[in-house]
Amino acid sequence: MNLVYAFAIAAQMGCGIYLLLSRHVVRVVLGILLLSAATNLLIFVSGGLINTAPPVISAGSETLGDQAANPLPQALILTAIVIGFALVAFAAALVLKTYRALGSVFTDHHNAAEAMGSPFVEESSNG
């Protein structure tokens, strides 16, 4: 089972990296999305995949049952999902704004920061 997960995560990460290397900024954001999802899976697998019962302490008992899954990776993933959600939403907004301001979604055309204060062009640096 672990091996299947390992290959699935590897495949997903490969797709994420491939998209990340694209010139198209929307693809880049999608790549980040895939990568962070794959990372969440990685944490999930590293928490162990043996147990199946939900990690809920039943009424009257003080500890988790034998078959309970490890709750910590779930908490970590939940946190990571929330953070990833916020950052990807922000990145999407940033992409939209960049597109509106620079008129292109291709990173080849994104050179406004580079042109600012460029050592080779004297006139473009007004700060």
Binding site: A86, A89, F90, A92, A93, L96
Partner: peptide, 14 residues
């Protein structure tokens, strides 16, 4: 607040 802050910005006509 956080979600709407982003979403309102995205939906608003530039």
């Amino acid at each position: 607040g956080g979600v709407l802050c982003l979403i309102f910005r995205l939906y608003e006509d530039p």
